[in-house]
């Protein structure tokens, strides 16, 4: 009795330990300690742009006044310091003259650098294939229909863009992050109309043909269906017109699910995991009908069906023979 109990205890302990290890194994790598060289410098700007309100000395009235900051000009400093360009001074991208307030009128005409100005032809970032991304983007609907006005910055917020798909082990977070990029326009008429005079088509209505829409949007990215696949780039950038979007359910709901080449591409290492599930890299996040069949269950079910048919056939024939 006692040994039985202690064995049970041991088994439970082992299981718990196993799952704890799994958890630890999957938790994100610690970010190496960062040194924010420009923090003090940037505070010059963030003391106004980091808040909803700001103060300045009004010489006309002769004392300090408090005013509201244009909400589009507010920058979340926490997001900024986690972004790819965390180690930048505001004035690396913006004119030094912004240090003065009120900002000079001609600063409005400032030409802002685009990604390719800094990243083009730089081998340090070869793995990101900036040139390939740029080429794809130029082919996309956004660029072809709106040329110059639609820059990379429209999707990559200069003050918060942070790579996800490449290094975030939490696929759900990546999905939310990437979808929010698209929804920042496609669910917000104000930003949409920066680019187009059209009425923003309601994405929820336009995707009513997709059952369990909320579940789908939480488990796949817009680009899975809307971007042309490109095997040499991690995140496809060629957003195509709506008639080229994926509408066939089986493109995801099948064993050779397209998600393996896109969303789960960075995770896909083996086609079948130890427990026998196809496309197992998906399983810790989702379960996709048709894409996550279990190999052993498949085999067992075919064997059992076979045996049942054989048994029934045998019994039936015997019955006829012995009549």
């Amino acid at each position: 009795m006692i040994t039985g109990l202690s064995k049970l205890g041991l088994a439970l302990f082992t299981i718990c330990a196993f799952f704890t290890c799994l958890q630890i194994g999957f938790s994100q790598d610690e970010v190496t300690e960062r040194e924010y060289v420009y923090a003090e410098d940037n505070q010059q700007c963030l003391k106004c742009h980091g808040h909803k309100t700001y103060y300045f000395y009004n010489e006309g009235v002769g004392h300090e006044v408090k005013e509201r900051m244009n909400p589009y000009f507010v920058i979340d400093s926490a997001e900024f310091y986690q972004s790819n360009h965390w180690n930048f001074s505001c004035t690396d991208c913006h004119s030094m003259d912004y240090r003065n307030f009120p900002h000079a009128g001609e600063l409005r005409m400032e030409v802002k650098a685009v990604c390719m100005d800094c990243h083009g032809g730089d081998d340090t970032y070869a793995k990101y294939h900036f040139e390939g991304v740029d080429e794809e983007f130029i082919k996309s609907v956004h660029s072809t229909k709106h040329s110059e006005d639609f820059t990379c910055w429209m999707c990559h917020n200069p003050h918060s863009y942070k790579i996800n798909a490449r290094n975030n082990t939490n696929v759900k977070q990546t999905i939310i992050y990437d979808n929010n990029i698209c929804l920042s326009c496609h669910a917000d008429i104000n930003k949409y109309q920066l680019i187009s005079d059209k009425i923003n088509p309601n994405v929820l209505v336009k995707h009513e043909w997709l059952p369990n829409q909320a579940l789908h949007f939480a488990n796949v990215r817009c680009i899975e269906c809307h971007a042309e696949r490109n095997d040499s780039i991690l995140v496809s950038h060629n957003i195509q017109t709506k008639d080229k979007a994926v509408k066939q359910c089986v493109e995801c709901h099948s064993q050779n699910s397209l998600l393996m080449a896109s969303l789960y591409r960075f995770q896909v290492k083996e086609s079948r995991n130890k427990l026998g599930f196809f496309n197992a890299s998906v399983l810790s996040e989702s379960y996709i009908i048709g894409a996550n069949r279990n190999y052993y269950l498949n085999v067992i079910s075919i064997v059992i069906f076979g045996l049942v048919f054989a048994g029934v056939l045998f019994h039936g024939i015997l019955r006829i023979l012995k009549k």
Binding site: P211, Q248, C249, V250, S254, Q255, N256, I289, G290
Partner: peptide
């Protein structure tokens, strides 16, 4: 389900 041999269309 399979792209090439759909028994019944998925949706």
């Amino acid at each position: 389900s399979s792209v090439d041999y759909p028994l019944v269309r998925f949706d």
